[in-house]
């Protein structure tokens, strides 16, 4: 059982401390802006700021912003991936009148009224990674191709389980799924891609209802343990890093029978790559957060200066890392948090 109401209270508390830090920041920017009037201030709001995915994105975006002379105001709840905590942050940032807002919405609908407020003040809004359901107000959206990633995950998992040989109509292969948030467009797209691919190509796979971990590894572990005890599970699809951690732990403590379970999961953390090399994970679906961050900053710059072309939607492919290609690719795609 998770505590929604409590989260709200905490969200408000975080937002108020944030407000203080943002306002002190504004004082600093104003002075800079006067000195060099060409300098833009861009508000950049992510889902869970301490997630290595967003840390990696920050590295890519910051480097590009520095090159282009853009001030980044980087914000996001440290760990809670929820619209309840994100909305007050976006609301607060409106007060600093940024040149543009880059937003990774934690809900496909909940942030839209706020986006409309930005548009009303003639502040262009961009989406990065996750996106609003209604894109009419959004100048540009750079995202990983999560639908394709979900499909690729299904293929990788089927191949790891030995689908042709081991999964039959009489004895279907049971797959457990873990997801951090079901209201986020990225998680939803991966789930959709996975389910579509299974429906199309793998009728002998039975997918269980997803475990919702709310970004807590221990909650994911507990859920996977239930799936493992209730069914003869052959594979696990972990939709983000938290769930991947949880899956590894559940298998570790479930005894020898669980050792043969194949795991395919999202996000190339240094730790998950290590687990793959140790044989505990069959494949890792990696996004390109640093590139997403760079590309969206380029789009913002193009919009603000009127120089260069802006495409409304840029989708970057999800990369499948396997023990076979790791030597070649892992170093490139591991999330860099520096």
């Amino acid at each position: 059982m998770k505590s929604r109401s409590m989260r709200l209270i905490q969200g408000a508390a975080v937002a108020s401390t944030l407000a203080a830090s943002v306002f002190t920041f504004v004082g600093g920017t104003a002075a800079v802006a006067n000195a060099a009037s060409k300098k833009f201030t861009v508000a950049y709001v992510v889902g869970a700021a301490s997630d290595p995915f967003f840390l990696s994105m920050k590295a890519g975006a910051s480097a590009e912003a520095k090159k282009l002379g853009i001030n980044l105001v980087w914000q996001g709840n440290p760990s809670v991936y929820s619209s309840a905590t994100q909305i007050p942050i976006v609301q607060t940032l409106l007060a600093i009148k940024p040149s543009a807002l880059v937003l990774a919405p934690t809900d496909t609908k909940a942030l839209q009224p706020l986006v409309a407020q930005y548009i009303a003040k003639k502040i262009p809004v961009f989406n990065v990674d996750s996106g609003d359901a209604n894109q009419s107000n959004i100048t540009s959206w750079v995202t990983g191709n999560n639908l394709q990633g979900g499909q690729a995950a299904a293929d990788a998992l089927a191949s790891a389980m030995g689908y042709a040989k081991n999964c039959t109509a009489a004895s279907k292969c049971v797959v457990a799924i873990g997801v951090s948030s079901i209201t986020t467009s990225t998680d939803a797209a991966r789930l959709k891609g996975f389910a579509a691919e299974v429906a199309k190509k793998y009728p002998n796979i039975k997918a269980l209802n997803p475990i919702v971990s709310n970004s807590q590894p221990a909650v994911a572990t507990s859920g996977f343990k239930q799936d493992l005890a209730a069914n003869k599970v052959s594979g696990i699809f972990a939709i983000d890093g938290t769930d991947l951690e949880g899956a590894a732990q559940a298998i570790l403590t479930a005894g020898s029978a669980a050792k043969s379970i194949k795991v395919v999961g999202y996000d190339a953390y240094a730790t998950t790559i290590k687990s793959m090399q140790a044989g505990k994970i069959s494949a890792i679906i990696s996004q390109q957060p640093a590139l997403e961050g760079k590309d969206i900053i380029d789009a913002v710059y193009a919009k603000l200066t009127g120089k260069g072309k802006i495409s409304h939607l840029t989708t970057l492919a999800n990369i499948v890392l396997t023990p076979a290609n790791c030597a070649k690719l892992c170093a490139t795609y591991v999330y860099k948090t520096a």
Binding site: M1, S3, N214, A218, Q249
Partner: peptide, 22 residues
């Protein structure tokens, strides 16, 4: 929780006070 998840995750236990009160 450390034992059961073989590491110290900062999200562990967050919100569990309400479960205890329940």
């Amino acid at each position: 929780w450390y034992f059961n998840s073989s590491g110290g995750a900062p999200q562990n236990g967050i919100g569990n006070e309400l479960e205890a009160i329940a």
